[in-house]
Design a protein around this nucleic acid. Structure first.
Length: 520
RNA sequence: GACCGGGUAGCUCAGUCGGUAGAGCAACGGACUUUUAAUCCGUAGGUCGUGGGUUCGAUCCCCACCCCGGUCACCA
């Protein structure tokens, strides 16, 4: 309760009147009335803390059959309530799970009884009591101390949860509207345990990747998000402005060039888990901000990176799935290493049925046009090859496949292949039809790099908005000497999608980008 | 950007071939001291996405717009 004088208004009304106004949904008015009632009783609706002995799952695990007890002190959100007058059963929920509580009038003092009568689903409670097993077999806390930790003023879109005899959890009348779920992720998480589990898995995947790299001697670093010049990938950037420097800055589209500078600086093995920003379309596999792992290792080449890719993905998978056989989007996917390896041009030969290396741009263009691409006329050979690859090859690759030796024009930061300079020592890992990993033997010849940048600059001048700029400072770093280095980028969001069985990136990003919403 | 589908009670949805709308759950009142989608009795709850138009009358038909999803295009 606030004794502070406040002139705050909402829709022109003092806040407390706003909650009681007839325009408010009845459940909100009802809850406000309960808040007032608590105030009259002198019961704080918003406590300052609570010290549970256990989370709900560990409290549950403490029960041993045969005798009641032990005594536990737990907290959670009220997720269900079955009131039978002088007693009531309810479930508390937290991140670990659910635990039933039994509230019997005769076990509570007078104030607690009144508080019990003012409870709503969604309230946060702290309770204390002995564990016991009910007649129907559920381990339950017989509550003898009840404390309201926070009053919920707005009904959560809770469905009714039924645990079937088979142990499945069925949710009735649940919160399903995807728009509301993304806009009000807090409510989505509160109400949908499987949504929570995706983000728990995401955290485990990321901490596993860190653990693998840390154990392997990599140093985790942070490089600029705000960059005077963007590079390291092909994409349109977000542009911003720094006032006191009066200068244009870009949100990074990749951290590659900054990380490789650190190898020049003798940090030897580095990685960064970074948010990247690309000002492009939004769809099931693209969000304008997304998370990428990039790592660089001195003295390694792309062959070594292939092994690293297998290790990272399989270790992450084992942290969150039962095994390396998973199912995704109707496919069964076998993540077991070693993964199939196929060269870029072999893959096209196999899945598109022609020798793209021997073909000239005209022939490829004919084939691409035949497949209904209206814009083929404007595309150069390397873009055409990319179209061929993504149209005919990628959708066919379900089990993880290492596609290596890309055309050099498509790879301005990769070393030419030894013995075949028309190709680059680069590979991608394709799983379930999408790119998961991109890696190469890093180009460390400053003269060659300058030439490649110059080609990119020419492409940009010719209208390619995604071509990279010429980063002179980066070339200067290469002039000091970059040892042979292997580098690898891994799309974290897509990895999480794969390992949690989600087919839209929004399901693995807590707050995906949305258009403005005018509703309250 | 194009096309398709959607936006109705707090949630999940139904519906009106144009006459201001229903169900289940949630809510509120009552009964019930081992329930678990608790049960039983009763009550209340909606500017039918927004703005225009047609009409005696629009949630429904028409137009425009907004938001969401899907497909395609774009985006390596």
């Amino acid at each position: 309760m606030s004794s502070r004088e406040s002139s705050a208004r909402r829709d022109g009304l003092p806040i407390r009147e706003w909650y009681q106004a007839p325009e408010r949904p009845k459940p909100i008015r009802d809850r406000y009335a309960k808040l007032e009632r608590l105030r009259e009783l002198g019961v704080p609706a918003y406590a300052y803390g609570f010290n549970p002995t256990d989370d709900l799952a560990s409290a549950l695990a403490k029960y041993e059959d045969g005798a009641d007890g032990p005594r536990v002190r737990v907290a959670g959100r009220l997720e269900s309530l079955r009131d039978m007058g002088k007693s009531a059963f309810a479930h508390l929920g937290d991140r670990s799970g659910r635990l039933q509580i039994y509230l019997r009038t005769s076990d509570l003092d007078e104030t607690e009884q009144k508080v019990r009568d003012l409870l709503d689903l969604g309230d946060w409670l702290g309770v204390e009591g002995d564990l016991f097993r009910t007649r129907t077999g559920e381990v339950t806390v017989r509550v003898d101390r009840l404390e309201l930790l926070a009053k919920s003023m707005r009904p959560l879109p809770l469905g009714k949860t039924e645990v079937t005899e088979a142990g499945e959890t069925l949710v009735h009348s649940g919160f399903a509207d995807v728009e509301s779920r993304y806009r009000q992720r807090y409510a989505d998480l509160a109400v949908n345990p499987d949504v929570r589990s995706v983000f728990v898995a995401r955290a485990r995947i990321i901490s596993t990747l860190r653990a693998v790299l840390d154990a392997d001697g990599y140093l985790e670093v942070e490089t600029p998000v705000l960059q005077p010049q963007y590079g390291g990938a092909f994409a349109r950037p977000f542009t911003t402005h720094h006032h006191s420097l009066d200068r244009t800055l870009f949100l990074r589209i990749a951290d590659e060039l900054y990380l490789k500078r650190l190898i020049v600086g003798q940090l030897d093995r580095v990685y960064e888990i970074s948010k990247n920003f690309r000002n492009e379309g939004i769809d099931r596999t693209h969000n304008p901000e997304f998370t990428m792992l990039e790592l660089y290792r001195a003295y390694a080449d792309y062959q070594a990176m292939m092994v690293t890719a297998e290790q990272l993905v399989t270790r992450a998978a084992m942290a969150v799935t039962d095994g390396l056989q998973i199912s995704y989007d109707g496919h069964s996917v076998d993540l077991s290493p070693p993964w199939q390896r196929v060269s870029f041009f072999e893959a096209i030969q196999r899945h598109a049925g022609f020798d793209a290396r021997a073909a000239d741009a005209e022939e490829i263009r004919r084939r691409v046009q035949g497949a209904g691409r209206a814009d083929a006329e404007q595309l150069g050979k390397s873009k055409l090859l990319d179209v061929v690859f993504s149209e005919w090859v990628e959708p066919e690759l379900v089990n993880p496949t290492i596609v290596y030796d890309y055309p050099i024009e498509m790879s301005p930061l990769a070393k030419p292949k030894r013995g075949d300079p028309g190709l680059a020592e680069r590979f991608e890992v394709i799983v379930a039809g999408t790119e998961l990993v991109n890696a190469f033997s890093e180009l460390n010849d400053p003269i060659d790099q300058w030439e490649r940048f110059a080609d990119q600059a020419a492409a940009r001048d010719a209208g390619d908005v995604e071509a990279q700029g010429l980063d002179e400072d980066y070339v200067r770093a290469l002039e000091y000497g970059l040892p042979p280095t292997g580098g690898l980028g891994l799309g974290i969001d897509r990895l999480v999608m794969l390992l949690t069985g989600r087919t839209t990136i929004r399901e693995v990003i807590l707050y995906p980008i949305m258009r403005d919403d005018e509703s309250d």
